[in-house]
């Protein structure tokens, strides 16, 4: 186990090193000047040159890369050209919003997708199965910007059942910061009005973001369950008189889990690296929005920072999933 984790971490470092080189090289290829972009169309040439010098961007690219790596090893991601703050500070501001939204979406996807998937497999071609499959197809292929605006228009503007965009009502102050996850921080500090408000704000974007993941998980659960239910050992289990519950949970579902876990890992990883459209429509100050603004303003220290975070999250989630296999399937040894 320890050896496995160490190997994975070494692999991760290698990936991150590659990411820095790639992103740095790509930034050189963009035929525009980030400094001029940051200062706007009215800036004079001498002002641009002065800011360029201040940012150290007057040095040649290889020199800047070495400086960047030196700082990175000390945990310094450099300063954003656009926000003029350390990229690390920006990430600490934006990442928790994305984590909170992804957790909400993932919870919804797991609670809805997996049980319905199991039910669909057990009652194949029943009306529940047909409805589930059709809605999975429909919701899974619905464009988020469309259904997101529609949902806001209906539940917020018309019915006024749910709050509008944003993480909190404008009149509410964020809870005292512990993790940056509003619901968690509010619950821990006993700030219940903020807790309920933040939870209500999570419902719509969480649901919208969960649509695709739910569809994927539902289909994966269904097909994996169907495959296992057709195996000889299930027939044997039934033949030896085991009750259906034991057949389902101890024999079928447990064996159907590994592909579901893998899918969960992939889906969760992609949610965490930022859901740009959902974040834009719901005014969610997360990583996806930070990344898009950074890219359009050529703020490459920020882009590098976001890329590094995304490149860390993916292998990290997958490692956790790999470890969880051992709990599900005793045949799997990860050493």
């Amino acid at each position: 186990m320890t050896r496995f984790v160490i190997r994975r971490i070494l692999g991760l470092l290698f990936v991150l090193f590659g990411v820095t080189i790639m992103t740095f090289a790509l930034a050189q290829l963009v035929p525009a000047d980030p400094v001029a972009a940051a200062l706007g169309s009215n800036a004079r040439d001498d002002q641009i040159e002065a800011y360029r010098k201040q940012l150290g961007l007057d040095q040649p690219a290889p020199v800047r890369y070495v400086i960047y790596m030196k700082n990175l090893l000390q945990g310094d991601l450099g300063a954003s050209i656009r926000t003029r703050r350390p990229v690390m500070d920006d990430l600490i501001d934006y990442l928790p919003a994305t984590i909170e939204l992804s957790l909400a979406a993932m919870t919804i996807a797991l609670l809805v997708g997996v049980p319905i998937g199991v039910f669909s497999a057990l009652h194949r071609n029943s009306w529940v199965d047909v409805v589930a499959r059709i809605s999975a197809m429909a919701f899974g292929s619905m464009p988020i910007f469309y259904i997101g605006l529609l949902a806001l228009g209906f539940f917020w503007r018309q019915l006024q059942w749910l709050p509008g965009p944003g993480r909190l009502d404008a009149t509410m102050q964020p809870p005292q910061r512990i993790t940056g996850l509003f619901t968690f921080d509010a619950a821990v500090t006993g700030n219940w009005p903020v807790f309920w408000n933040a939870s209500a704000h999570l419902i719509l974007p969480g649901l919208i973001l969960a649509l695709f993941s739910t569809a994927v998980l539902l289909r994966m659960t269904r097909s994996s369950m169907l495959e296992i239910l057709g195996q000889d050992y299930i027939r044997t289990a039934r033949a030896k008189g085991l009750n259906e519950r034991n057949v389902l949970y101890r024999h079928a579902f447990k064996n159907a889990l590994p592909p579901i876990l893998t899918t969960t890992g992939i889906v969760f990883g992609s949610l965490l690296s930022g859901a740009v459209l959902t974040e834009t429509i719901f005014n969610w100050p997360g990583l996806g929005r930070y990344a898009t603004t950074s890219v359009t303003t050529l703020d490459y220290p920020a882009v590098l920072g976001v890329t590094l975070v995304a490149a860390t999250i993916y292998p990290l989630v997958n490692t956790l999933i790999d470890i969880s296999y051992t709990a599900v399937d005793p045949r799997v040894r990860i050493d």
């Binding site: 806001l152 228009g153 503007r157 965009p165 944003g166 834009t280 429509i281 005014n283």
Partner: peptide
């Protein structure tokens, strides 16, 4: 408040948010 979507700005002033 920064609300980038103009449709959402419209809804916010309609609902009184």
């Amino acid at each position: 408040q920064n609300i980038p979507e103009s449709a959402n700005r419209q809804a916010a002033v309609e609902t009184g948010d």
